[in-house]
Design a protein around this nucleic acid. Sequence first.
DNA 1: ACCTATATTGTACCTTGGTACAATAGTTAT
DNA 2: ATAACTATTGTACCAAGGTACAATATAGGT
Lengths: 217, 217
Amino acid sequence: MIILCSTDEKVLARWQQGLDVSEKYIVCTDQVDLNASINRHQDSLVLLQLNFPDLINADDVAKLVLAQPSIRVIVCADVPDDEQGLALLKAGVYGYCNTWVASAQLGRIIEQVKAGEVWVGRNLILRLINDLSAATQAESPMGHECLKALTQREYEVAKLIGEGNSNKRIANELDITERTVKAHLSTIFRKTDCKDRIQLALLVNQTTSTPISKLGA
Amino acid sequence: MIILCSTDEKVLARWQQGLDVSEKYIVCTDQVDLNASINRHQDSLVLLQLNFPDLINADDVAKLVLAQPSIRVIVCADVPDDEQGLALLKAGVYGYCNTWVASAQLGRIIEQVKAGEVWVGRNLILRLINDLSAATQAESPMGHECLKALTQREYEVAKLIGEGNSNKRIANELDITERTVKAHLSTIFRKTDCKDRIQLALLVNQTTSTPISKLGA
DNA sequence: ACCTATATTGTACCTTGGTACAATAGTTAT
DNA sequence: ATAACTATTGTACCAAGGTACAATATAGGT
């Protein structure tokens, strides 16, 4: 069973064209309708036009998805937005597409979701891939790798630097003089290509943000 | 036209079951075959079993995709792996799925790709969404409690400290003197209860490790 | 009008961080 | 066994970070 949720006649008519002729469907025009339909028909697929009464944003839809785990929701937005789509998918919807998607394509999306897959448009999916690889690339070049090149003692010092401790405190902790801490630090900086203890601290904690000092020139 | 690339009879037989009866296809068993087929049939869809001769990893497939922009490639792996899938999708393939996917599902994937969409399995797509939101959250973590008490300007300084920049560089960036940066920093330290710039940097990046300085006595 | 918060900058002073140029000693590998 | 790596410490020096004790100016609220 497919539950079509929209208050717009034109949208509903268009959606019906995308359904297989053998497909049974219900039309809901408000939240009460929708809840009743969900209760009557478990494991339904819900096609929902965003801005449907009381379901105007991602948070509302997230609540619906949480409250009704048995249904699969495909959200249609009149003006698709990557951020919104990401939020909705994170909230647990099975698809996010344009309200006015071609009928044939809508049919394929429904097939996909009925098969248990999640449908995401080409643009958003490519953005996801690029953004993620960019994000993970930023944290992996130095990351934990170059810390492996450190000796045991240097590693201990680096770890304490990563906790924000001063040389004096590190010296106390490791029971060596402050001078020795400095010696280890100099070696660590050279090995890890860090300019100072702050960059090392961020490195140890695998910070992803890119400092000005490593941008441009 | 669909080009099926595999050296395994069983795989080829299974794939053929997933194709629409009206669908035309070619079978290729080596790289030469494949290149010839691609040249004869522009805009083809290539279904490729990984470990196909000379196309054993993501890099090889990436080269093929770059060299043949007119084709759309769906890669099938006997043992799907998220990292591999991500690499291939980044390289420009239109789909990544299990070699032994159900015939009906393979049909849907092919339909999807023919329509210009990119097909990604549920698990990988959910991982992409979660990883990205986690990564972007880590990128702008400035939501910590005591950072809320900062003024706009102090916040900017704190952010730059979080990137590991020096006072001089921050002064340059914000177009103020180094002295002013120090003034802001003193206020920030007092408000955030930080001893120095390192603790602030770690705070800004929401580090979970507990420094010696905040343990015990 | 007065007070508070904010943003900016100055001088002086002290502390901490980091490097240069050393030395000593233990361990490991070729 | 000689070389290379590791751990340790010393003196000296300079750069950077941070505070103390200021002043000036602007904006907003009582």
